[in-house]
């Protein structure tokens, strides 16, 4: 039922028997999976299946009660984890964008490189222009987040993460708040990143995108990894739960 695909290269992310509860509510019930270098892993499942929590655990935004998580050489389960070192290696994009409303697009992107990596203003500005052109928004550098559409804000959020040159990018339902057209422009950016070899884990409801772009699909159900496989697994579900989920989802 919960088979773990072995990745060809040494894993960037490795979850092993991860347990997590919010009070009496068991959210992750022995979750294990690996993601290798350059892989694009899509975590799918119903609301409440634990997929977002799993992603947040990978970035140490939630603490786990049992099991181990290794991310880019950091032991997430270790109480002595250096969170800032972890966050230099891992970028995350949220469903609600979470741009800083008091800063322009460019300032949003420049903040972390100047604060954390001690880049000069000039270097950071060049970097901001570069990542903005990557997401097709160099013309918006001097605007404030509220002046942008949701899709544009989300692309800025992606650019802001990219500016830290992460080894791994996490995407937490990044298109769930967007209409289909805006969803398309964000997915296009993500597809480009995937093609360029970025290691990515995305929690998503976009089945077509998962099938097309993901090298690994992890179907979660009731806090467990129910089924894993390649994108093709969505065409040939092995469990009745995944069959029902896809039936409802498409």
């Amino acid at each position: 039922m919960s088979s773990t695909l072995s990745s060809p290269l040494s894993p960037v992310v490795s979850l092993s028997n991860v347990h997590k509860s919010f009070g009496a509510l068991k959210v992750l019930d022995g979750v294990s999976f690996d993601v290798g270098v350059g892989e694009v892993a899509a975590i799918i499942g119903q609301s409440g299946s634990g997929k977002s929590t799993a992603l947040r655990c990978i970035n140490a935004l939630e603490t786990i009660q049992q099991g181990t998580i290794q991310v880019c050489g950091h032991a997430i389960h270790d109480p002595a984890l250096d969170r800032r070192a972890l966050r230099r290696d891992v970028g995350i994009v949220f469903q609600s964008y979470n741009l800083f409303p008091h800063l322009t697009v460019e300032q949003n992107i420049m903040l972390a490189p100047t604060c954390v990596k001690a880049l000069s203003k000039g270097e950071a500005r060049d970097l901001a222009r570069e990542v903005l052109s990557h997401v097709g928004l160099e013309a918006k550098a001097d605007q404030y987040p509220e002046q942008l559409s949701g899709g544009q804000q989300q692309r800025v959020a992606i650019a802001r993460s990219l500016a830290m040159r992460p080894k791994l990018m996490l995407f937490d339902e990044v298109t769930s708040a967007l209409d289909p057209q805006l969803t398309g422009e964000v997915l296009k950016v993500m597809e480009t990143l995937a093609r360029e070899g970025m290691t990515m884990i995305l929690v998503t409801h976009e089945m077509a995108f998962a099938r097309k772009v993901a090298s690994k699909v992890v179907y979660m159900h009731q806090g467990r990894v129910w089924e894993t496989g390649t994108g093709a697994m969505l065409d040939d579900p092995q469990t009745p739960e995944l069959r029902a989920f896809i039936g409802n989802g498409l």
């Binding site: 966050r87 970028g91 979470n98 800083f100 903040l111 972390a112 604060c115 954390v116």
Partner: peptide, 16 residues
């Protein structure tokens, strides 16, 4: 709280 979280995930120190 999401603003704290976003800043934290960019590796900013608590003071920053």
């Amino acid at each position: 709280k999401t603003q704290w979280e976003a800043a934290e995930c960019l590796a900013l120190t608590r003071w920053q």
